[in-house]
Design a binder for these strands. Structure first.
Lengths: 151, 151
DNA sequence: ATAAATTGCGCAATTG
DNA sequence: GCAATTGCGCAATTTA
């Protein structure tokens, strides 16, 4: 998404950036104050006055644009962060759901197992009692042929 | 993941940076005006010379530290991004797994249903044939009492 | 006390 | 033209 353009790791593509902000803790320091101007090429040497519409710096226009952008940046970042958080939450939710589902599966498996056993038992009963009667009260011997551990 | 520490959302903990910015949204705007240094503390006014080891700027030390930090920052951000991506992937995986589990549940449910039906049928057969024999070849009437739609 | 890691922020180049 | 993104560097903090 969006090429990183060609911005090498050129250390300081910045050129200027610093305006005069800075100050800070360490006791502020001087002002960098530099005017970028174009580097080598055929720089147009526009007078420091207002060439055109004062697109230089300090321009009201400029300042305003910067501010707008800063705002947009902040917003964008906030959204980004939020999204990441949401994603994380989604992971947790899904994990929980997964556990629930697995529990359910286990349960169903057990139920199935029980029913199957019961079933087999009866089947055998029938087989054994092809001809009913007698055999006193034994609960019909339990046999164990198939352990039925499906899955 | 790392506490957000105590950084209020104070907007500009920066110190200065504000040039004249602010304003915005609602429209009001007031002049920021820098903060008057430390309140009660002992304001040490060290001359701009070399307060110790030239930790000012341009210092080799400074430059080196900056570079190191820049590197660290880059690394950190990369990791962060990667993590986010991984999280997203995890979401996808979990979603898939979820679907699989649900399928399995559905299947097991069906199996159970079948077995239960079969079971009931037999039970009824037995009940009807409390006294075996005769009754020719009818498959023992099928009754339908319980529809067994568990859960 | 120190170096590395994080985090908020502003700038500028791109994108859409 | 403008808002949204994105890479980058700075400085303040937090961790280790």
């Amino acid at each position: 998404m969006s090429k990183p353009s060609q911005q090498k790791t050129t250390k300081d593509q910045n050129g200027v950036s610093v305006i005069q902000t800075q100050a800070h803790t360490s006791g502020l320091q001087q002002v960098p104050q530099l005017v970028p101007v174009s580097p080598g090429g055929g720089g147009k040497a526009m007078a420091p006055s207002k060439s055109k519409k004062s697109a230089d710096k300090e321009s009201d226009e400029y300042r305003q644009r910067r501010e707008r952008n800063n705002l947009a940046v902040k917003k964008s970042r906030m959204r980004s962060k939020q999204k990441a958080q949401d994603t994380q939450e989604r992971v947790n939710e899904l994990k929980e759901e997964n556990e629930r589902l697995e529990s359910k599966i286990k349960l169903l498996g057990k139920e199935l197992s029980v029913l199957k056993d019961l079933f087999l038992e009866h089947a055998h009963n029938l087989a054994d009692n092809v001809q009913p009667q007698s055999n006193d009260g034994s609960t019909t011997g339990q046999n164990n042929k198939n352990n039925n551990t499906g899955q």
